[in-house]
Design a protein around this nucleic acid. Structure first.
Lengths: 195, 195
DNA sequence: CAAATGTCAGTCAGTACTGACAGTCAAACC
DNA sequence: GGTTTGACTGTCAGTACTGACTGACATTTG
């Protein structure tokens, strides 16, 4: 990423996010962060006061968090495969956008209060949406009627697992090997839930 | 856990495992580990030489690693639901037994060389076994024939996700909420893969 | 007695964070 | 146009503390 045109504040936030997500909060020094941002350590402290506050600022600034509910009510077409695809895609999009923040919350749970909750808010929302979707689909007779909570949970867990797996192996963005997984996983669920 | 009867060496290893899995390698001091073990810091260094070596020793001592392949060839009964249950159970048993080591490898990836690979060895093995199982089942006409790799991968990812989810929420052992998930997830796959 | 452990003082390197001072640069003012 | 001002940044030396690790000597325990 070319950060040279950003303000110094943003450069620091991004550098912090990159480094801390890789090596953990205690694994990175303020000196390193400043160097990575092409600035002096002094500037870091002048802008943020402390290392903690720097990380919190990074979190606030770069934690993407739009509302989803309305979005879904418009987009669902009440066809199982199409809608599952929408859910999968939305899930991975959210997770990938917050990928680094997510990694930090995994590694440094103890360090930041309430971090985990915020990071998991959207996935939880998605789970709710999917559960309700399954219930409605059953009512419409378009799906077998049995344990929608667990079915939704299973679907989400599958995607959660795949995302985490992705985090480890190829640390770069392109969810290239994710795509065939998404396709197949949807086929499986569609076949299992069809009435 | 009552560690009072163990040798001092084991007490240190367990204390290290407990603390580091919660707060990360850099988040725990040697002093804390020693205190938690009810011993002096000096003893820690006398026994292990360094903090790194302590962790490595803990890993070697408490990373359960029996072979699985033979085990499976004996236990599989070639009935989809029963065998999927066996795979699920084995998976969660392995993961839970290595739970703390696994958490450390998540948090402190960078710290330990080759940690991740060792931790993931058994899950990978399981994936292979399951893939081959699916292939054979297709050949026998007991399962639809289509993309066994991805189907196995999806199944494993689902369980991986559930395991990770478990790690976060209730930090204690009893995989109580895991059980209904396992049941339902197997139903789903059995229904999806039935010919 | 011998092996294991504790105590305590101390070394050494790192690390978050500060203060004093100086340079740059663009806008504002004369 | 030249000067001043103010916001921002850098340098450097330094403080205060932490944390891994050591050595000398005393104490416990089987």
């Amino acid at each position: 990423m070319d950060t040279s045109k950003l303000g110094s504040s943003d450069r620091l936030l991004l550098a912090a996010l990159n480094l801390i997500s890789e090596r953990g909060y205690n694994g990175v020094t303020t000196m390193e962060i400043a160097k990575a941002a092409g600035l002096s350590e002094k500037t870091l402290f002048r802008q943020f006061g402390s290392k903690q506050k720097l990380l919190e600022a990074a979190f606030d600034r770069y934690h993407y968090a739009e509302e989803m509910k309305k979005l879904f009510n418009e987009k669902l077409v009440w066809k199982l495969e199409a809608d599952l695809l929408l859910v999968s895609r939305t899930y991975h999009e959210i997770m990938n956008r917050n990928r680094k923040i997510f990694q930090i919350s995994l590694k440094d749970e103890g360090q930041l209060p309430g971090f985990r909750e915020r990071t998991h808010k959207h996935p939880h929302q998605l789970l709710e949406i999917l559960t309700n979707y399954f219930i409605t689909m059953s009512d419409k007779g378009k799906m077998i009627a049995a344990n929608p909570e667990m079915q939704a949970f299973s679907f989400m867990m599958m995607n959660y697992g795949a995302f985490q797996n992705d985090l480890d192996s190829h640390k770069n963005y392109p969810s290239i090997s994710l795509e065939p997984f998404i396709q197949e996983s949807i086929k499986i669920f569609a076949r299992a839930l069809r009435p």
